[in-house]
């Protein structure tokens, strides 16, 4: 058991800081060392897949739907695997369980807009003027806003926004190709999603198609990159792809390194990723 971080915090106030042996993998920088680095990373990835197996029981328990209907499940699975496919660079959104991330978010605070301001009136962004709201006329309409967050000006919970958008997407897919989205080829799916981005569908159940596109991209990458505790990023595949180390702070997993050493090192150093759950376990908090 390494020194608990909580203990460490107590000790550090007194100035006594100690670390164990160095066992992190140091990658020397030489001009032609990139392939060498990749080998090292493959080795790390193997370590990770061991961890992945250990995690698989938990993962299976999380693989159940709380809100997406069976039709929606097929459609969402098709959307996320189109956005992040499984390919030579590793597993994709489907294998990462992104659909469970989305489902669980939509079933909870996120989908219920629990922490969102939801009072009316509801006016979309980027309206050209003049517009009249509550008896006041605004010659220049409403401002253009960032792609997500404030842009959300719908009188819908996000769960309803998804339901509405998914139905409109199937309708649009059928109008263009005579098939449901999940039955299309990858190229056709990409085309349909691109059409949403370009606001091509003329009727989309009162949603601006691009707003739905933004939400799909946002939630797919979030499901791929956020901690596995949320049901996506199974086996930390998203982190393996980018090289992000998660809750591995160097000193927490017996690698015996102070993060500060890493920051100022003139040799790049990589650790395998660890999840929040692993962190809490190893710290004796779980």
């Amino acid at each position: 058991m390494p020194i608990s971080r909580r203990e460490f915090i107590k000790i550090s106030a007194a100035g006594a800081v100690g670390f164990g042996v160095a066992s992190a993998i140091e990658i020397p920088i030489l001009e032609n060392q990139i392939s060498n680095e990749r080998d090292q990373i493959t080795a790390l990835n193997n370590q990770v897949s061991t961890l992945q197996n250990q995690l698989s029981t938990t993962v299976q328990e999380q693989e159940a739907f709380l809100t997406l209907g069976v039709n929606e499940q097929k459609e969402v699975e098709a959307i996320v695997e189109t956005i992040i496919p499984s390919d030579q660079n590793g597993l994709g959104a489907k294998e990462a369980g992104v659909i469970f991330f989305i489902d669980h978010q939509l079933a909870g605070d996120y989908g219920n807009n629990a922490r969102m301001y939801m009072k009316g009136p509801f006016v979309l962004s980027g309206q050209t003027g003049p517009i009249t709201v509550g008896g006041i006329t605004y010659p220049q309409g409403s401002p253009v806003e960032p792609f997500t967050g404030p842009t959300y000006q719908y009188n819908l919970t996000l769960r309803e926004f998804w339901r509405t958008g998914l139905l409109a997407l199937e309708a649009y897919s059928n109008s263009v190709y005579g098939k449901n989205f999940e039955d299309l080829t990858t190229d056709q799916r990409t085309q349909i999603l691109t059409d949403l981005y370009n606001n091509k569908p003329t009727s989309f159940n009162d949603i601006v198609p691009k707003d739905f596109f933004n939400e799909l991209i946002f939630m797919t990458y979030s499901g791929f990159m956020m901690d596995p505790v949320y049901g996506g990023n199974n086996g930390m595949v998203g982190w393996i792809l980018t090289g992000f180390t998660g809750a591995n702070m160097g000193d927490s997993f017996n690698q015996g390194r102070n993060v500060l050493d890493l920051m100022v090192a003139d040799k790049p150093t990589r650790f395998p990723p660890h999840s929040l759950g692993e962190f809490q376990k190893i710290m004796g908090e779980l």
């Binding site: 807009n113 006016v123 962004s125 309206q127 709201v133 409403s142 401002p143 967050g149 404030p150 959300y152």
Partner: peptide
């Protein structure tokens, strides 16, 4: 312009 609330 009409001002939009930051909803999220």
């Amino acid at each position: 312009q009409f001002a939009l609330p930051v909803r999220r």
